[in-house]
Write a protein that binds this DNA or RNA. Structure first.
Lengths: 332, 332
DNA sequence: TCTAATTTGTGCGTATGTATG
DNA sequence: GCATACATACGCACAAATTAG
């Protein structure tokens, strides 16, 4: 038991003394990677402590990534880096351009002693489950973007529920958790309403929507708009079905679909914003510059990242709607 | 007993080490369908284990359909293509738009049961070291983008060296590893040479270069070009120093810098491709569409991802230069 | 295959001191 | 002075995992 000591010295909490003594052993090299720590019961007996006190110390070290535990075996040294004070688990759906803004803004809001690990579930519930289950007990906070996956609730319930934050989409079943999310239904409906006058010069409005990847709220917002307009609406579940025709307008969510559409329009010699209309979801720097500007319905992803970081730092448990803006440009 | 090993590594449960070592033998082809596994007693004696420990490992593999047992005969490999969960460690420098193409192409080349975990070192050698050290033994393959970090060799050496692949930049010290990389020096030089005629209408060519993030090869290629042209060349290490002037051309690597420049040009009312010239590094879908098209010097990131995936699947140990193309558009 | 020892993981209840309003 | 919240510490019980014999 040479790596741990507790001498009921003034003020210092006992569990912190344990943490500190292990940190020191790591720094002076007497504890090495892979070494086994004394068991919880051994420490308890040696220093006449409660089991919980020792557990608290070991848990802190575990969440900082310094030690790891194997149920039924013991605690082992995993990393010698004592500089990390907090670890945050971030689970996104997929990697794409605007997630860059979100991630970078989130990361920048923390100091360098906070480690942020990012994972992607790619809309695969098995991957989602595996990544979450493997992360249990290893992080201080869990930021999860469930996207439109179903039955995530039971999986997320395994995490400490006061350390979970939900991002972007916010299904009914997860409403107990704090969150920064988009109100897709209203954002879509309101934006389309605002665009109504401009839309009137087109004879049809087409939505290109992927059931797998995109939020149902958008679809609901789009369908709701049907009751408020005379323009015939159409929904396509793949770009394959879409043919670009003069006089039609298109609401596109995925950027790959957007580029397909823009190319088709170019090939057909159709003037964007005149003969065909384009509305795109999710603004990025370049959409202002493409074809004289693409009209976008968008949330501010940097803002989302900042808000989330602020909530975690201030231990706030709100449910925040991330602001949405309509950027009207020449494409519609 | 070459397919199984137990070396109480980092506290991992022994039965899990057995499972893992058999999985690895299946992956690298040294164990094939129909092969007999060593008997439970042989394994027990060889590694001084309890019979139950070995049994537990074999049972798990049996449950997963990977091996089967015949009473009185022994355990045999049943199939290779079941859900052997492969884990791949990917370490990028930072998250940005064209890494999306690379990552997605890489991922798409594998079946859904392959888990790819992605990490970012943000050009910080300490982070680089920590992430690698902590991943040792947890993954089947390691894909690393050292970017322009120095002295990565000693850190990478800790990984199993037949499982390491280097991406994008390929410094001298890492030339022992298989790799898919860009030849920045020649790509830059050759592209500029091809653009020479077009460049002649500009009075100066400016490079905007970040020492921290961008490959030295680009700088060398740019400097090499100096000997072949009469156009005065300038290097800026930050966009702060750059003023957009009529008659000048700019080679921009970072997309954020590109957008800054384009906006500055717009604000000054300078016609892109006429009064000022722009060359950008790394093509993305949208660069074809911005301002009538941005000229790019680019590698094919999707191709890079596919090549890498293919190398891993076929156990190839090549060093492949990823093709570079010059896409001449209206911005120069 | 069964039993046993050890260890981690989790949940619940309780008590105390400190800071806050 | 009082109520409240929070961190710290203790005790107990039981579940599940790991390993040995």
């Amino acid at each position: 038991m040479k790596h741990i000591y507790v001498e009921n010295q003034a003020g210092q909490p006992k569990y912190k003394q344990i943490v500190k003594s292990i940190e020191e052993s790591l720094l002076n090299g007497s504890l090495r990677k892979g070494d086994k720590l004394p068991s919880i019961n051994e420490v308890r007996d040696r220093f006449s402590l409660s089991r919980d006190t020792v557990l608290m110390a070991f848990n802190e070290l575990k969440m900082r990534g310094i030690i790891e535990s194997f149920s039924g075996k013991g605690y082992y040294v995993r990393s010698l880096d004592t500089d990390i004070s907090q670890k945050i688990f971030v689970l996104f759906d997929e990697l794409n351009a605007f997630k860059e803004d979100l991630y970078n803004a989130f990361l920048k809001s923390f100091s360098r002693d906070v480690e942020v690990d990012i994972y992607f579930h790619h809309f695969n519930i098995k991957v989602f489950e595996k990544l979450i289950n493997e992360s249990i007990g290893n992080y201080h906070y869990y930021v999860i973007m469930p996207a439109n996956l179903k039955e995530t609730c039971e999986i997320i319930r395994n995490l400490p529920n006061d350390r979970v934050y939900i991002l972007d989409q916010f299904p009914e079943e997860l409403k107990v958790y704090p969150s920064v999310f988009q109100d897709f239904e209203n954002d879509t409906f309101n934006s389309l309403s605002q665009l109504h006058v401009r839309l009137k010069k087109y004879s049809q409005l087409h939505l290109i929507f992927s059931e797998e990847k995109q939020p149902q709220g958008m679809l609901r917002g789009f369908k709701k708009f049907e009751n408020y307009t005379d323009i015939p609406l159409h929904i396509h579940y793949s770009t394959e079905d879409v043919s670009v025709k003069s006089g039609h307008a298109y609401l596109v969510i995925d950027d790959r679909d957007l580029f397909k559409l823009l190319k088709l329009a170019k090939d057909s010699g159709l003037k964007i914003g005149k003969e065909i209309g384009i509305i795109s979801y999710n603004d990025t720097l370049y959409k202002e510059l493409i074809e004289g500007g693409i009209t976008t319905i968008t949330t501010d992803f940097s803002e989302m990242g900042k808000t989330l970081a602020h909530m975690i730092k201030s231990n706030s448990k709100e449910k925040v709607i991330n602001p949405n803006t309509l950027k009207i440009r020449n494409s519609l």
